[in-house]
Computed example of a mutant assay.
Amino acid sequence: MVEVTRQTITIAEAAKALGIGRNAGYEAAHRGEIPTIKIGKRILVPRAALDKMLRGEAA
């Protein structure tokens, strides 16, 4: 059986990883400061894009 690693995290998980509150995470995502994608009604943060952002690389 192949183990699949999630390629996206929730905004709440991203906020926790960044050391900010959940509401601050949603506000940052709304302002475009945290990279997001929308799948259906869910707003998710791609791990690769977040890592790239944290390394200071252009989107």
Rank of each mutant, 00 (worst) to 15 (best):
residue 53 M to H: 01
residue 13 E to L: 02
residue 5 T to W: 00
residue 28 A to T: 06
residue 34 I to Y: 09
residue 6 R to D: 06
residue 31 R to P: 03
residue 42 R to Y: 11
residue 18 L to T: 04
residue 13 E to M: 06
residue 37 I to L: 14
residue 43 I to R: 14
residue 43 I to H: 05
residue 29 A to C: 13
residue 23 N to I: 13
residue 3 E to P: 00
residue 39 I to W: 01
residue 26 Y to L: 11
residue 25 G to I: 05
residue 47 R to A: 11
residue 36 T to R: 15
residue 32 G to T: 10
residue 19 G to W: 08
residue 25 G to A: 08
residue 43 I to K: 14
residue 4 V to F: 02
residue 56 G to W: 09
residue 33 E to C: 11
residue 58 A to F: 09
residue 19 G to R: 09
residue 30 H to V: 13
residue 18 L to F: 04
residue 35 P to S: 10
residue 22 R to N: 14
residue 15 A to G: 03
residue 22 R to C: 11
residue 10 T to C: 03
residue 23 N to D: 14
residue 47 R to F: 01
residue 52 K to T: 15
residue 3 E to R: 07
residue 42 R to A: 12
residue 31 R to W: 13
residue 8 T to D: 05
residue 22 R to F: 07
residue 27 E to H: 10
residue 33 E to T: 08
residue 22 R to Y: 12
residue 49 A to F: 00
residue 25 G to C: 05
residue 1 M to N: 07
residue 15 A to W: 10
residue 59 A to S: 15
residue 5 T to M: 06
residue 18 L to A: 01
residue 35 P to K: 10
residue 18 L to D: 01
residue 37 I to N: 07
residue 11 I to E: 00
residue 9 I to L: 14
residue 21 G to S: 12
residue 2 V to D: 00
residue 54 L to H: 07
residue 39 I to L: 11
residue 52 K to E: 13
residue 44 L to N: 08
residue 31 R to Q: 15
residue 34 I to A: 14
residue 55 R to Y: 10
residue 39 I to S: 08
residue 16 K to R: 12
residue 3 E to W: 04
residue 29 A to E: 09
residue 21 G to R: 02
residue 11 I to Y: 05
residue 1 M to H: 02
residue 48 A to F: 05
residue 3 E to Y: 07
residue 35 P to L: 08
residue 54 L to P: 05
residue 58 A to K: 15
residue 29 A to G: 11
residue 9 I to Q: 10
residue 22 R to E: 15
residue 29 A to D: 09
residue 34 I to M: 13
residue 15 A to C: 02
residue 6 R to W: 00
residue 25 G to H: 05
residue 1 M to R: 10
